[in-house]
């Protein structure tokens, strides 16, 4: 391996995960890092939909909740094997996304945003009201720990060793995806739907596929979340959490897998580190959303990369873009 290959982000990522596992023993920090992982999983999925395909979802927390509740209810109430429940969650989520997606993705822009927002709020109301199933506002307790090869994943360290390799795998899948035929079609759909169609891209099918795909990520994240906390309550899956996810995408940058990680990490750590942040959290999200979109509409990381790249080519060729 030559030295440059060590700078490959994937190698660095793997090394960081191993190092953390070996050196970090503080349960608080490990738990925090696990939440970063779960959030990154959600944000990568949302970014595929929003940043790459250009389709907004203001109700992504609903899929997260659907995954969490399917896992939670099946394991805590019915004693189903957690891994099986996780699969069931993905099935439920995928199916829901499909059924909602068929009519919703015919809508554009503002209408799609409103439809996903409405859908998110309906599910949130159901999470709250269907108390006999979900425990309502007071929550669902007694969700068992996951276990793998006979090991109970009951400590933050053990969960870390599940969540982060899984996340690494999902991020690799996503990076492959965006660099594949389908990924190019997604980006093409975002930047010019008519042009993409004129080249044979079935844009409505593609939108539906990526919507379902990103719902699957959210479902997986939801299941992991339920087994990490052993407890879930409706308040975690409301409108504000959907907005928080959008903020993570915007902060990290549209159409950027690593940016998703950054956005999720910053907005997961900040509220924990700064206690004053808690009261101002909502204001800060609002400011981030507005300021970043006004000045760098493709998000922070991607926006800065664009500026650099455009400048480079303008300098080299003396071209006016």
């Amino acid at each position: 391996m030559n030295p440059r290959q060590f700078l490959n982000p994937w190698v660095l990522f793997g090394a960081a995960v191993l190092l953390t596992a070996a050196a970090l023993h503080n349960d608080y920090y490990l738990t925090l890092i696990n939440f970063i992982g779960i959030h990154t999983l959600l944000v990568v999925g949302l970014n595929l939909l929003m940043g790459y395909a250009g389709q907004i979802s203001l109700g992504h927390a609903a899929f997260f909740g659907l995954g969490a509740y399917t896992s939670g209810i099946l394991t805590a109430t019915y004693g189903v094997d957690p891994w099986l429940a996780m699969l069931a969650g993905m099935l439920v989520c995928g199916l829901t996304a499909f059924l909602i997606g068929v009519p919703a993705l015919k809508l554009r822009g503002y209408y799609l945003a409103m439809a996903t927002l409405g859908f998110g709020i309906i599910l949130y109301i159901v999470f709250n009201e269907a108390e006999s199933w979900t425990g309502g506002p007071s929550g669902l307790t007694g969700i068992p720990d996951l276990s793998l090869f006979g090991f109970k994943l009951d400590t933050p360290k053990r969960l870390f060793l599940l969540i982060w390799p899984v996340l690494g795998g999902i991020m690799a899948l996503s990076a492959n995806l965006v660099d594949s035929r389908t990924g190019r079609a997604l980006r093409a759909l975002h930047e010019g739907e008519a042009a993409a169609q004129s080249l044979g891209v079935n844009t409505s099918r593609l939108k539906l596929m990526i919507f379902v795909w990103s719902a699957l990520y959210a479902s997986l994240a939801g299941s992991l979340y339920a087994h990490t906390l052993n407890f879930i309550a409706a308040a975690s899956f409301g409108f504000m959490f959907s907005i928080k996810l959008v903020t993570m995408v915007v902060l990290g940058g549209m159409a950027s897998i690593w940016g998703s990680f950054l956005g999720a990490a910053v907005l997961t750590v900040l509220p924990e580190m700064l206690t004053m942040f808690h009261d101002y959290e909502v204001i800060i999200f609002g400011v981030i959303l507005m300021v970043v979109m006004i000045f760098l509409p493709r998000g922070l990381v991607r926006g800065i990369m664009d500026l650099w790249e455009f400048r480079r080519y303008k300098k080299e060729g003396g071209i006016i873009g």
Binding site: G109, Y110, A113, V282, F285, I288, M290
Partner: peptide
């Protein structure tokens, strides 16, 4: 639209905060 949606949503969240 994507930009404007996010900005007005941001505005809403900001005012709420």
């Amino acid at each position: 639209p994507l930009t404007l949606i996010i900005i007005t949503v941001g505005g809403a969240v900001f005012l709420k905060g």
